[in-house]
Amino acid sequence: MADTMAQQRGAQHGATSPGDDGEPRRDFLKLVAGSFAAVGVGAMAWPFIASMNPARDVLALSTTEVDLSPIAVGSAVTVVWRGKPVFVRNRTAEEVQAARAAPLSQLPDPQADQARVMRDPWLIVVGICTHLGCVPLGQKPTDPRGDYGGWFCPCHGSHYDTSGRIRKGPAPANLVVPEYAFTSDTQIRIG
């Protein structure tokens, strides 16, 4: 039945050579037309989708300079980089010691403190909990700093240590170390 119909259609279009029922040729045409349509729809959809990605002015605001000289040992400041808080902490010797003493095998996201800082006392991390994006507490001396002396996220109870590494709670990863560089001894540029 299907064969007969195919033969009729093939005959109508005069597209068949004797003994060929026309189907492979028709399948090919359908496939090519369908593929072109799909690519065309995708090409037209792309500008709409891409328009929702960060615009050029948003991307342009991607570096922040920080003067480190007013930050006393043991204190911290919060600066804004790309609309996010960045914690800049001048750690005490004990805090650095505590961060380095922690055995890597006990860390959910193992990373040595040395790999997370450029100069010993200065810890620079994005102040956004890697769980669901809250800002952890611990920047002010009066804030709770969690069980490991770093930061504590009040939203869902993640504890970070003095290297900004996750130690306890639902967050899957350490606080992110942004790209930064020392432009002088007392100046950094983030981004």
Binding site: I49, M52, P54, G83, K84
Partner: peptide, 16 residues
């Protein structure tokens, strides 16, 4: 980042 239109919830996010 695509949902936000930036690197945090900000004006582009509010607009969309």
């Amino acid at each position: 980042t695509w949902l936000w239109g930036g690197f945090s919830v900000d004006n582009p996010t509010l607009n969309r």
